[in-house]
Amino acid sequence: MSAPTGVVDEALVWLNDPLTWTEPGGVLDLTGEHLAMTAIAVAVASAVAIPVGAWLGHSGRGAGLVVWLTNASRAMPTLGIILLLAAGGLFGNSAAVIAAAFFAVPVLLVNTYEGVRGADPDARDAARGMGMSDGRILLQVELPLATTLVAAGLRTTIVQVVATIPLAALVGGGGLGQIIALGMGTQRYGEVLAGGVIVAVLCLAIDLVLAIGQRLATPAPLRSSAR
């Protein structure tokens, strides 16, 4: 019992040291870098997955194959992608961002596809009856109706990427994973525990903020139907 208690005590001491947070390269700096990497990875994934998922949901062309391939890609571990990129000569933040973006695409694509595909057929038919083009139907009717699922996909994706980015430290990248990697390298396991706690709290905090944002982004009529 003494060893675990010692690790917890060491973690508390480390977390309560003001320099841990404020010094250059401290927790605050690493958190900023962590969030920046997350934002880039999610932006890249969104730029690919949301338009493709929306168009497939609207047209239905090749949707089954693409969704199957997307789901199959989830079986490839993010760490494996990072190590493959490192073997190809790509290290640091770039490797982690690319791997996290690859990891983020499936959830976004499938949620967008399902949201657009499940849009109210009556609303779609009414838009066609008004002479709206396919593009306008997608942008002005189907995507707004798909807001709830797209927002849910973004929320899940962002939290998953925040939890994945610490792997960047294994290939020389930044972010909060540096705390865990440094603690493992120096056998300061209290620091490892503290780093894990910081990442977990960050994930929970972001999920809470995104849950509020998801509700605000959902049109009022859809909120009522969800209830």
Rank of each mutant, 00 (worst) to 15 (best):
W55K: 07
N71A: 12
N93Y: 06
L85C: 03
T22C: 06
A43M: 11
V27L: 09
L83Y: 10
G25K: 00
L30V: 00
L28I: 13
A41K: 05
A41E: 04
A95E: 02
L30W: 00
A54L: 12
E33T: 12
A47T: 10
A47R: 07
P24L: 11
A54T: 11
L56V: 04
P51Q: 09
V44I: 15
L79I: 15
D17W: 03
H34T: 05
G80T: 12
G25R: 03
L19W: 12
A95F: 06
A101N: 04
W68Q: 13
A45K: 04
H34E: 07
G80M: 12
A86H: 01
I50Q: 10
G89Q: 10
P24M: 09
R74Y: 13
N93T: 12
F102C: 10
A96L: 03
H58R: 14
I98G: 06
G88Q: 12
L69H: 03
A101F: 03
M37P: 08
G62C: 01
A95C: 05
T38D: 02
A63C: 01
V67K: 06
V97S: 08
A45N: 07
G26D: 00
L90W: 11
V27E: 01
T78R: 04
V52C: 12
A100L: 02
V52I: 15
G88K: 13
A36F: 15
G92C: 10
F102Q: 03
V27T: 03
A86N: 05
A43S: 14
W21M: 09
A39Q: 06
G80D: 11
E33G: 15
D17H: 06
W68T: 09
E23S: 14
G25Y: 02
P24H: 11
T78E: 11
A72C: 09
H34V: 05
N71G: 12
A43H: 08
L90V: 15
A49K: 07
L84K: 10
L19G: 12
G64R: 13
A86G: 01
I98C: 05
A100Y: 03
I98S: 04
G53R: 08
A95I: 00
A96M: 04
N71R: 14
